Simulated assay, not measured.
Amino acid sequence: MPRPVIVGVDASHESRAAAVWAAREASRRRAPLRLLHVCAWHPPVASGASGSASQHLLARRVLRETEAHVRSVCPGADLVVEQAEGLPSRALLGAAEEAEVLVLGSRGLGALTGFVLGSVAQAVVARAVCPVVLVRAGRGAGDGRRYAVPHAGSHRTAARDVVLGLDLNDPCDDLIDFAFDTARLRSARVRVVSAWSGPSAFTLGPGEVGLIEGPQRAEEWRGFQDAVLLAWRDKYPTVAVTGDVAEGRASRALVRAAADAALLVVGRRTCAEPHMGMRTGPVAHAVSQHARCPVAVVPHS
């Protein structure tokens, strides 16, 4: 049985958009959908019983309303609802261990909504063992449209691109495979964006392209990108691929390229040493703040 797509839900608009996005993704993957609401645990006090009861009533209402909304937009969704109690980051990270994809609502500009605030959001994105998709409400989230699983021979409009941020100095198979497979499920094109910077006394090393002019250097990077993608074109022959290289900051190039995208896919290097703390990397952090489309952060070694 496929691993589920799990979405963390609360009472916000961003959470509702994330739930719809997750339902559509689960349908594409022929996977079950799990709606998860986390009630933050608080130490008991004298009047704690009524407070706890109210919190659980609110949680059940949030789950009930979210389920109704998902079913109205995505009829036939194979979903279950779940209520958990405890530290939100721990509950979500535990769910990520069972998930194919974990989906969260995001307000962008650095503020994730509801139960994933501040350090909780950072912990989930930085430590989850599965891809985490951040979805904002509004354009790009697919709000307000009914969705059915496409079938062979059905008429389809052109799908928006899946944009892949690819570091040519350290291309990762897990990241590339996720982007290509996600595009395959949508019958979408993969647009691969790689950034490069001119050499300096601090960055130029053996084997790097640094002794030619800018336009020629860009062509060299395009050649590197084509070489990396060659095997993936063969593995996914039905997926159209286009490649771009841009000089300058990767996050800026990716946000610009993903302005009309269905999804932006970036990597996050896993940390082998727990004492190193929570790190998403500068590119993943920046695009999760500023990209208008959903952002998938894929862990890789």
Rank of each mutant, 00 (worst) to 15 (best):
R184Y: 09
L185G: 09
R186F: 04
R186L: 14
S187G: 11
A188F: 04
A188G: 03
A188S: 15
R191E: 09
R191Y: 07
V193I: 14
V193D: 03
S194D: 08
A195D: 01
W196V: 12
W196Q: 03
S197Y: 01
S197V: 11
S197M: 06
S197H: 09
G198D: 15
G198W: 14
P199T: 02
A201N: 07
T203E: 02
T203W: 07
T203R: 03
L204W: 15
G205Y: 09
P206E: 08
E208M: 06
V209P: 10
G210P: 01
G210D: 05
G210F: 11
L211N: 04
I212P: 00
G214S: 06
G214W: 14
P215G: 09
P215Y: 12
Q216M: 10
R217T: 03
R217A: 15
A218V: 01
E219I: 00
W221Q: 04
W221A: 01
G223L: 06
Q225N: 05
D226P: 00
A227M: 06
A227D: 15
V228K: 01
V228Y: 10
V228I: 06
L229R: 01
L230M: 07
L230G: 12
W232L: 03
W232T: 14
R233P: 00
R233M: 02
R233N: 05
R233Y: 00
D234W: 01
K235F: 00
K235R: 14
Y236Q: 02
P237Q: 02
T238V: 12
V239D: 08
V239Y: 12
V239W: 02
A240Y: 00
A240L: 09
G243T: 14
D244Q: 06
V245R: 09
A246Y: 00
E247G: 07
G248V: 15
R249G: 12
R249K: 12
R249H: 13
A250K: 05
A250G: 08
A250C: 11
S251T: 03
R252N: 05
V255D: 07
V255P: 07
R256Y: 00
A257M: 09
A257P: 01
A258L: 05
A258K: 07
A258Q: 05
A259C: 01
D260P: 00
D260R: 06
A261P: 14
A261L: 12
A261Y: 04
L263F: 07
L263S: 07
L263G: 11
L264Q: 10
V265Y: 03
V266T: 15
V266A: 11
V266S: 05
V266I: 15
R268S: 04
T270C: 10
T270M: 13
T270S: 09
C271T: 09
E273A: 07
E273P: 00
E273S: 11
P274F: 08
P274C: 01
H275L: 13
H275M: 11
H275I: 15
M276K: 08
G277E: 14
M278V: 14
M278Y: 04
T280M: 15
G281R: 12
P282I: 00
V283W: 02
V283P: 06
A284T: 12
H285L: 05
H285Y: 15
H285W: 10
A286C: 04
V287S: 03
S288F: 01
S288N: 14
Q289A: 11
Q289S: 11
H290D: 12
H290I: 08
A291D: 12
R292H: 13
R292I: 05
A296M: 10
A296E: 09
A296H: 11
V297N: 11
